[in-house]
Amino acid sequence: MTLSIAPGDLADPRVLRLLDDHLADMFATSPAESVHALDVSGLQSPGMTFWALSEGDAMLGCVALKELDPAHGELKSMRTDAAARGRGLGRMLLEHVIAEAERRGYRRLSLETGVEDFFAPARTLYARYGFAECGPFAAYRPDPNSVFMTRELAPRAA
């Protein structure tokens, strides 16, 4: 079957399961005050775009892009189903968001993730794609449980 990334339906029970699993893992690995993961209402906020990764009827992942300003986006809610890990789905989702951010003309894409070992594979993936650690951005504040990363993007073609 073919993998596809398309706008996600935040009322789809398969998407809701992914998001519930995501939030459960975040609260299980980080102190509550350091969990910056979004629930459905947060993903429905203005400036937010949400996609789902599927293979046939199986929902395998999701990701969101938040516009911070016309030149800066934030990666949010990137999740792959635990049973589907190791297939390169995180790379697909990340490449999709980077391409969309560049298409929109963003000059920078940033993210917040955790310091715990649970997040090490994600931090490694982000670093492979050119993200480097940075200070807090947007409304974030320094947090010993957070790692902030950013990547400069190629200027939009004229």
Rank of each mutant, 00 (worst) to 15 (best):
F148V: 00
K76Q: 07
T29C: 13
R108F: 10
W51Y: 12
V147D: 01
E102F: 06
D21M: 06
F118C: 12
A24V: 04
F118D: 05
S30L: 12
E67H: 10
E100M: 03
S30G: 03
G73I: 03
A6I: 08
A138R: 08
L18T: 02
L38P: 00
E102W: 08
T150P: 01
E133R: 10
H72A: 05
R104C: 04
E67A: 12
L19K: 05
E74W: 00
E100L: 08
Q44M: 13
L60C: 09
M48S: 08
E67F: 00
A99K: 08
Y126N: 11
L153Q: 08
A28K: 06
G61T: 12
T113W: 01
A99L: 11
P13M: 03
A84G: 06
D21A: 15
N145H: 15
E74R: 00
G73H: 07
A132Q: 15
W51P: 01
D12Y: 08
E102L: 03
E74L: 03
P136I: 04
L89R: 06
P155S: 08
P13I: 03
L23F: 13
M78W: 09
L3S: 07
D69I: 10
V115T: 15
W51F: 15
R14C: 06
G88P: 04
G61Q: 08
G47W: 06
Y129V: 02
D81F: 08
L38E: 13
T124E: 13
A158N: 14
V147K: 00
D69K: 07
G88E: 06
I5A: 01
P31R: 08
V97E: 00
T49W: 14
T29S: 11
K76P: 02
S146H: 05
L10P: 02
L19P: 01
A82T: 15
H72P: 07
G114M: 00
L53H: 02
R14S: 09
P121G: 08
L3T: 01
D12C: 08
L93A: 02
L23H: 10
P142S: 09
S30D: 11
M92E: 14
A71M: 13
S34T: 01
M1R: 09
V40L: 08
H22P: 01
G90S: 07
A157K: 14
L153D: 01
D81G: 10
F137A: 06
N145P: 02
R123F: 09
S30R: 14
V97I: 15
A99R: 10
M48D: 09
G86L: 11
A24Y: 05
Y126Q: 03
H22A: 15
A37D: 14
A132D: 15
P7G: 06
G73T: 07
A101R: 00
A83N: 10
D20P: 03
E100Q: 14
Q44N: 14
P13E: 04
